[in-house]
Structures are given as C-alpha cells and as structure tokens.
Write a protein that binds this DNA or RNA. Structure first.
Lengths: 245, 245
DNA sequence: ATTATTAACGTAAAAAATACATTTATTTTA
DNA sequence: TAAAATAAATGTATTTTTTACGTTAATAAT
C-alpha cells in the first residue's frame, strides 16, 4: 500500500481494506451511487453523513473505490448492499466524473451510477448503522465534492430515461396500482398528470398485467394491483417500440 | 514506470511515453474514440490497423491511456488531434467498458467517447501517417477486444440522441444545405424521409439561419446554404424544448 | 342508510405527423 | 438561343396522437 506516500490523506485509511487494489499513488477509480427512492408520493435520495475527515459531518453520496477484481457495477452493488441490505438493485451508469482537480489533492475518476430503490424493501437497521438516510429530493442538503452535480445529472437522466423506458416500475413494489404509478411519474416529472390520459397511455403499451387483488390502503374503493409483464416488454423493446409516457 | 513488472506486455512499450501516468501495475484507464464521419451520403467510421503486438494487423478504434494531469475528454481530443489533425471536436462520453477481463491479461477500464467529424476537414496526411482510415459504416471489419460492442453502442446512442438534440449538425460543414442535412439524418436513421415534411420540421425549430449563398455542386438549381444558430439553440434548450426530427 | 373517499372510465377538440405532386432555378446540350 | 435535364423548393388534405374535461362506481366509516 502506498498510503504513506500521501500523508495528507490519512483519512481514507479507515475506508481502505487491503484488497482495494485500485488504490495506488497514481490514479484512483471510484464509483458513487445516486440512489433514488419513492415513498408516500415523494422522491427521495439516499445519502449519508461522513464520519471521517476530511469533510466530517458533511453529506455525501454512497460510494466506493473499485477493486481490481470487480466491475464497476459490482463495486456499486457491493457498497449498496453494505448500506441498505439490498442485492441486485437495478442500476445504470450515469457518467464519469473525471475533472483533474475534482477530488482533494489526488486524482480520482468516479463513475456515477444511479439506482432506483423500492423504499419499503430496504434494511432499516443497516441503513441506520451506516449513517445513511433518505432525504426528500426537494430538500437535499449540500453534498461534498461534485456530488451535487452528480445528483443534478442523475435526476435529469432519470427524467429523460423515464420518457422512453418504463424505468419507473423499478421504483415501485412488485405489485403496484395505477394511481401509485401515476404519482411516481408525477414525482419524477414534477408536474401533475391527467389520470384518464395517463391510464390510457400506460395501458396502451400492453405491458401491464391486471391482478384480481386490490390495494385498499389509500381508498375505500380500493385500486387494482398491476404487475409488469417483463416478457412482453422485452418483446416490444426488441421491435424498437417507444415507451414514452 | 512499472513496465518491467509486466514482462508479457512489452508490446505497449512502443505506445508509452514517460508521462503516461495512468500506466501502473494496478489498474489502467484508457479512452477509445468512436469517430463517425459523414461523406457523400454515407456514414463512416474512423479506425486504424494496429502496427504493434498483440493483434498486429487487426483493426481497432483510436484510443489512448489517460494521463494523470488530463481529463478523459482531453485525452480523447489529444489522440484525435494526433490522428486527424482536428482540434476541439464535439465529443460525448458514451459509457465505460470495465469488464474485469476485457483487456488481455491486465485490468483496464476504457471510457468510450464518440465523436462526429466533418470528413472534409480532417488532415488526410495525418490520418494516413497514423494508418487510420474511414470505413463505410455498413462494411466495418472486425475490431479488437470489445471495440465492436463500443461501435454498436455508439451508433445506438447516436440514433437516439439525434432524436432530441440537433447533434447531426456537428457532422456537417459550417454551411450546409437542407438536402445534405436530410441525407445525414437518413444515414443515421437508415430510412428515407419525405423532403417536405423534413424541411417543415427542421425549420420549425427556428435554429437555422438561411444564407444568401447557394451550393451548386449537386444540382443545377443549387441549394441554399444554412448555418446553425447556436445562440438561439441554447436559448431554446434552456427552456426545455425538444428537437426531435 | 347515508356520507365520504378515491378509482375507473369515454369523448370531443386541438395539435402533430404523415402522405402526396407540381413548379422553379439553373446548367448543359442541341 | 431554345429545349432538355436535374435537383430544389413548396402546400394541403388526411390520419394519428395528444390534450382537456366530468360522471359514475365501489367500499368503508359513521
């Protein structure tokens, strides 16, 4: 380990393990996760408060260095599991953050990845242990380094992506209702939608399966549950069909 | 330099200079350029024939290791200038290629970037000196490593991107005619378009400035030149307007 | 049985996309 | 110098998609 050659970066000692092979005295490769969650009609972001120097007490995205023997997405999935208990989360590469001076004194390229979490699923204990928490998207505190920019880029990507891929389903439980789906899209796009037009559109894709069961938690009448027909979706995708909502 | 620690990769000696700081015995960061050009109605790709082992004689994208003191896009621009003589080419990050075993025996993450070149502009001598050449997109030879995948990803991105950003203008000369612009889009989308509808649409964005001058190289009547109104475009972009053609 | 609450649904109007054929400017050739 | 050849420029009618908008239905709570 070349840690000794960088006395002003002792802080990362605590984060390092001997098998973080990407840590050397030249260039560092990391990944940061922009983790969105959707809960009670609002879009949230998973961030944590740094417990070590520098920037102790400041808020940060959850990230990790990339090990020599893992892919970038493995690294992100690893840290995500450590933080939330969730495995195999849907995750997409956002872009690299590679400005020469983006980190404090050493060269580090970070590959941003955004993830969409079903908030109900995550392991509360693990999240608390790690010091991570869900923040309402509109009320985010300031983040370290270029993490604010990452969040800005990620929400822009999410909005665009949601227009041609049914990405939003990843944010909802396996079974979801149309009102839930609509409120998710409203949260992503930050605007209200007409329920009749929304239903018409979303059902017209033919990738939703209506279930017998109803969700009665939010109304007396109850709303039918739907689930996503992955097989049908992949068929349509391969034919080049657009899923713009 | 840690080259000696990797005796089986002496081949890269010839490509290395002392200031390629990203070359160490742990993880390597590179960038590869997927360079599209448009010429005489066909989409082309700039590739070169490797002159060194391994894979000598095979075709490859143009790429470089990323230096410690340069951004990824600087690295790509540097190698692009070395190869084509062009500076400040419009370039966009595609995605990272980071599979653990993607390179031959050592760990190398490559950041794919795609560029759009006005073929008329490039320095023919430089391109020839370097061994690079333009290949018609539909007739590409097999490329080394995962470069075929990069090309596949890049054309898909180009097609999608062209739908909501006037990216295509980057592929044309400063002054271009509407028939040229249409034929460019036809090449990107691989389908014919109706000229009346195309003109209607493209002019409706209000980002094209009609010039007095005509291009008479392809017809007796001649076609008016247009140029792209960058200022107007940026205004509209900030208002969130879509440029789908 | 009444009230309260949210889910489910259809149609008419406006806007956008598509399909389609003729005239125009200019050069070349007879 | 008139005729022919060539690609550029243009408008309208039809279809499709998007938008706007109000009423009835199912159930739980009172």
């Amino acid at each position: 380990m070349e840690i000794e050659t960088k006395p002003n970066f002792k802080f990362i000692n605590s984060m390092w393990e001997n098998d973080y092979y990407s840590i050397h005295d030249k260039m560092y490769i990391a990944t940061d996760c922009i983790i969105f969650g959707f809960d009670e009609g609002v879009l949230k972001l998973l961030i944590f408060k740094r417990k070590v120097q520098p920037d102790e007490g400041k808020f940060s995205l959850i990230g990790s260095f990339v090990k020599l023997n893992e892919s970038v997405s493995s690294a992100a999935n690893r840290v995500l599991e450590e933080t939330t208990g969730l495995k195999n989360v849907f995750m997409q590469e956002l872009k690299t953050y590679n400005a020469v001076d983006r980190d404090l004194g050493f060269r580090c390229i970070s590959i941003g990845q955004y993830a969409l979490i079903r908030i109900e699923d995550y392991d509360k204990d693990l999240v608390e242990k790690y010091g991570a928490m869900w923040y309402t998207f509109d009320e985010l505190p300031d983040l370290v380094l270029d993490h604010n920019l990452m969040v800005k880029d990620a929400i822009a990507r999410l909005r665009r992506k949601a227009r041609y891929q049914p990405i939003g389903f990843e944010l909802l439980p396996e079974k979801f209702t149309l009102p839930q789906l609509q409120s998710l899209y409203e949260a992503i796009y930050q605007r209200e939608m007409d329920s009749r037009n929304f239903r018409k559109k979303v059902l017209s894709f033919g990738v939703l399966i209506k279930l017998e069961e109803k969700d009665k938690t939010s109304s007396k009448k109850g709303a039918f549950y739907y689930k996503f027909d992955n097989k049908k979706y992949n068929e349509l995708l391969s034919k080049g069909i657009n899923f713009e909502v």
